[in-house]
Amino acid sequence: MMTQLANLIRMAAQLPIFMSCVALFFLMVMTFCDVILRSTINAPIEAATELTRMSMAILVFSVMPVMSFQGGHINVDLLDGLFDRLRLDRWRDVVISLACGVMLYWPASRVVVLAERARSYGDVTEYLNWPVFYVSWFIAILTFLTMGALILRGLVLIFAPQMLEPAK
């Protein structure tokens, strides 16, 4: 049962990774075209700034739940030797995952407030006139998913730590 759940989560994790890859590719192509157009015929893509902001939001926030669940964040291991000697490294990861997961509620809920404010004011982007609240809601939803992923990671580390070991 637990391995089936782990396989389902791994399959579901491929969609946000694919979205992030598409956003990165779009960002590379758009930047290339913008530089070429700016340099050759002095006609930059006017909406490049807006598209870059949206692409970066998709790129960063779509992989946050996956990276958080896998424990793929950058960390500084100043105390790893101490925790390893005391055999407390798993419990350190449990506390960090659960604490960070719980703390993400506040920024996620604040982004919801900002998204609703942008929707109620009718805020749109400057060149493309796209509603701003769509990107804000995307960020809020993915932050809530990251919150859930971190809490789930903490619980898995407590009850089934072998699920997080790399597949052989």
Results as ranks from 00 to 15, higher is better:
3 T>Y: 12
4 Q>V: 15
4 Q>I: 15
6 A>N: 13
6 A>Y: 05
8 L>H: 05
9 I>E: 09
12 A>K: 00
13 A>H: 04
17 I>G: 07
19 M>I: 15
20 S>E: 06
20 S>F: 00
21 C>P: 00
22 V>F: 04
23 A>T: 07
24 L>K: 03
25 F>P: 01
26 F>E: 08
26 F>T: 14
27 L>S: 12
28 M>T: 14
28 M>I: 15
30 M>A: 14
33 C>I: 15
33 C>K: 09
34 D>Q: 04
36 I>L: 13
37 L>D: 06
37 L>V: 08
41 I>S: 04
41 I>D: 09
42 N>H: 13
42 N>K: 13
42 N>T: 13
43 A>Q: 15
44 P>R: 01
46 E>G: 10
47 A>C: 10
48 A>H: 06
50 E>A: 06
51 L>G: 02
52 T>F: 05
52 T>D: 04
53 R>K: 12
54 M>N: 09
55 S>E: 06
56 M>T: 15
56 M>D: 08
56 M>Q: 11
57 A>R: 06
58 I>Y: 01
58 I>E: 00
62 S>T: 14
67 M>H: 03
68 S>C: 05
72 G>Y: 06
73 H>A: 12
75 N>D: 12
75 N>R: 15
76 V>N: 10
77 D>R: 08
77 D>P: 05
77 D>L: 08
78 L>H: 08
79 L>W: 11
82 L>W: 07
83 F>Q: 02
84 D>E: 13
88 L>H: 03
90 R>N: 10
91 W>K: 07
91 W>V: 12
92 R>F: 11
92 R>L: 15
93 D>Q: 11
93 D>N: 12
93 D>M: 08
94 V>E: 07
97 S>W: 02
98 L>A: 04
102 V>G: 05
104 L>M: 11
105 Y>P: 01
106 W>K: 08
107 P>K: 00
107 P>R: 01
107 P>N: 01
108 A>M: 06
109 S>T: 14
111 V>P: 02
112 V>D: 03
116 E>V: 12
116 E>Q: 13
117 R>F: 09
118 A>M: 03
120 S>F: 07
121 Y>C: 07
122 G>C: 04
126 E>H: 11
126 E>Q: 14
127 Y>C: 11
128 L>N: 07
128 L>G: 05
129 N>F: 10
129 N>A: 09
130 W>V: 14
130 W>H: 05
131 P>E: 13
135 V>C: 06
136 S>Y: 12
137 W>E: 15
137 W>Q: 11
138 F>K: 02
140 A>M: 04
140 A>W: 00
140 A>G: 00
141 I>H: 00
141 I>Q: 03
144 F>W: 07
146 T>Y: 00
146 T>K: 00
146 T>M: 05
147 M>R: 02
148 G>S: 07
150 L>D: 03
150 L>N: 04
151 I>G: 01
155 L>D: 07
155 L>C: 10
156 V>T: 15
156 V>W: 01
158 I>A: 05
162 Q>Y: 10
162 Q>D: 14
163 M>C: 09
164 L>S: 04
165 E>Q: 10
168 K>P: 12
